[in-house]
């Protein structure tokens, strides 16, 4: 069972690295979003320090969604998706591996870039670690939830906007607990571990449920 999945991961990783560098695109989009916020809210260091984790999280959410719309559409267009249905490997596992490869190619660069962008937002060391830890745990959930939207819009031309409309409401719990854990890391009344544990639970639940939902959508739309 593992050799086909490793082959799929390698293929997805290579495609992601070679086609226009979607990882780099996501990071540039992330950078742009974070860079324009101080122009909108003003350069007050205290204000930026306070809302910094939230800005980083919203930017990471939008950058993740931006890169997700082609997750299954490219496979549907070149005929690979039909062939996935004919393989011994269950479609659910294929979805999971595609999400893992997508996260490694686009989510990880965001997390690596986040501390540097956090410095632009006057974040202190503990806050930076908090943001990195919450993004590391929370962005896989964003990718997995986004995969449902990508699967549901696989037959829709230019479905990116529709996908965002479908997915953004579902990501609200991730955003709430991600931001509150990141803020708790730099002090406050709430201990860091409480919202962080819920964030971990959301990601684990997404890991268990989203591949089934996305594969069901792909099966239904493939008919």
């Amino acid at each position: 069972m593992s050799a086909p999945l490793a082959a799929l991961f390698l293929r997805e990783w290579r495609v992601a690295r070679r086609i226009g560098g979607s990882g780099a695109m996501g990071v540039v989009f992330f950078l742009t979003l974070v860079a324009i916020v101080p122009f909108a809210v003003g350069p007050d260091p205290n204000l930026l320090a306070r809302i910094g984790p939230a800005i980083l999280w919203i930017a990471a959410l939008l950058a993740t969604l931006l890169c997700l719309d082609r997750l299954f559409q490219a496979d549907a267009e070149d005929g690979s998706l039909d062939l996935f249905h004919l393989a011994e490997t269950p479609l659910e596992l294929a979805v999971l591996v595609k999400c893992a490869a997508h996260w490694a190619a686009t989510g990880l660069p965001l997390i690596l870039a986040a501390p540097f962008l956090g410095l632009m937002l006057q974040q202190e060391t503990m806050a930076l670690w908090g943001v990195v830890a919450t993004l590391l745990v929370g962005t896989p959930a964003l990718t997995l939830i986004g995969a449902i939207g990508a699967a549901a819009t696989v037959t829709v031309r230019r479905g990116g906007l529709l996908m965002a409309l479908l997915v953004l409401p579902l990501t609200i719990p991730v955003l709430i607990f991600g931001v509150s854990a990141a803020e708790a890391a730099s002090g406050g009344t709430v201990p860091f571990s409480a919202p962080f544990a819920i964030l971990c639970a959301i990601t684990l639940a997404a890991l268990a449920l989203c591949p089934f939902a996305a594969a069901a959508a792909l099966r239904y739309l493939g008919e």
């Binding site: 290579r14 495609v15 070149d78 005929g79 039909d82 004919l86």
Partner: peptide, 13 residues
Amino acid sequence: HYLAHSDGLKSAL
């Protein structure tokens, strides 16, 4: 094996 109108190939690879 199913060979459809589309070839099932990734152009970047």
